[in-house]
Simulated assay, not measured.
Amino acid sequence: MPKIQVNGIDLFFDIQGTGEPLLLIAGFACDSSYWSAVMASLVKQYQVIRLDNRGVGQSSAPDHPYTVKQMAADTAALLDAIGITQVHIAGHSMGGQIAQELALAYSEKVQSLMLLSSWAKGDGKFHAIIETLGDLPQILDIKLYSKVMLPWIFTEELYSTPGAIKQFINIASEYPFLPTTHGLYHQSRAILNSDTLDRLTHICCPTLVVVGKQDILTPVKFSEQLAQEIPNAELVVLERGSHGFLIECADTVATVMFNFLTNHSQNRRH
């Protein structure tokens, strides 16, 4: 899998499929593999580009502060390097923050925007959770860290499925590209220092906002605020969805994404 040098780091990326370009940006502590459950559907009609944000996966994890704007600049540099001039973008969680900054600073590159389980400005409770999730890797091993983090990600339904959570913890502990402690810390602080609320009215591309009704980490009110402030944004609230709906409800999320993309493809507009 390829890497390129951008903004002083090695950035890992992956391209699959053909068609209009679609960029997928993962969230805190997650690399490009977080989109795996929806990939089979998306690559049937789109050239899907995934990347590992700085701090995770196979990209560099420099031990100094990160910003969401910086990660957006990394992503824009990747698009330039691979010759993509305009792209549909989907960002999950922190990836949605990065996607917002891309739409604001590089609007000419963004054909449409999908913000999944994301927000413009977190509240006090959310900031306390993110601060803790950034600090805990310094004192917990990956299995204990997963036990702390996963209740914020998945539904009671999954926790009631025998062996499901244990399987996720085992997968996480055996993953070959675990993020570094300092990478997680710097990503968490990038989240805490990000705020797009007073700039959302400047996002001019077609925008879809999606959230799970059962999301306790980035609750529905965050997505309602995004949809209210971004001009003409569409809001979809999934009844069964949690913050981890890309895993728990992958088919449903892929369908919602497809419906939006179909309505905003170049072929349809022309």
Rank of each mutant, 00 (worst) to 15 (best):
E157V: 11
T161I: 12
A105P: 04
L116M: 12
V6Q: 03
A128V: 02
S118Y: 03
A29L: 05
A233G: 10
L246K: 03
G183E: 06
S188N: 11
V68M: 12
T262E: 13
Q70P: 01
A227E: 00
L246V: 08
N263A: 14
S194E: 06
E234W: 06
K44V: 09
T161H: 13
I89V: 15
L22S: 02
N267D: 12
P2C: 07
L78C: 01
I4A: 05
H64K: 15
M1K: 09
L192G: 04
L116A: 06
H186T: 04
A81F: 01
A90F: 01
Q58M: 13
E234K: 14
P137T: 04
C205G: 07
V236Q: 03
D215F: 04
V209K: 01
Q187G: 08
K121Q: 13
A76Q: 13
Y34S: 14
V48H: 03
M114I: 15
L78N: 04
E174T: 14
R240H: 13
L22E: 00
W119R: 11
M149V: 13
V211P: 00
D198C: 09
L23D: 03
L217Q: 00
T18E: 15
I130G: 00
A90S: 12
D123W: 02
M94Q: 14
W119C: 07
H264G: 06
K221E: 13
M39C: 02
H88Q: 09
L140H: 09
F177I: 04
S36D: 15
A120L: 08
Q16S: 10
L51S: 06
H88V: 12
E131C: 09
F245P: 04
E157I: 09
V148E: 00
L184V: 10
P2R: 04
S112A: 08
S160G: 12
W152L: 15
T252M: 10
A105N: 15
L217R: 00
S36H: 14
G27R: 04
V43E: 02
I129V: 15
R268W: 08
A105L: 14
G8E: 09
S242V: 07
V110A: 07
M149F: 14
H202T: 14
A233C: 12
G91D: 02
L192A: 00
Q97H: 09
E174K: 14
H88F: 10
V210A: 01
M1D: 11
H264R: 08
F245W: 12
V236H: 02
V38E: 09
A103C: 11
Q138D: 10
R268V: 13
N267R: 13
N7C: 08
S112I: 00
P179K: 00
S173V: 03
L113W: 03
G19W: 05
G212Q: 05
H182L: 11
K143H: 12
A105C: 12
D74H: 07
T132P: 01
M39L: 15
I98L: 09
L246E: 04
V210Q: 01
I25F: 04
D141G: 15
A29V: 11
A99E: 05
Q167L: 14
A233S: 11
G163M: 10
C204A: 14
H270E: 15
Q47R: 15
Q228M: 11
S223C: 10
E101P: 09
H64G: 07
M94D: 02
T18H: 10
P65R: 05
L235F: 02
Q58D: 06
T75Q: 05
I230Y: 03
H127W: 11
N7F: 02
M94V: 07
W152I: 04
P151C: 06
M94E: 11
D215Y: 06
I84L: 02
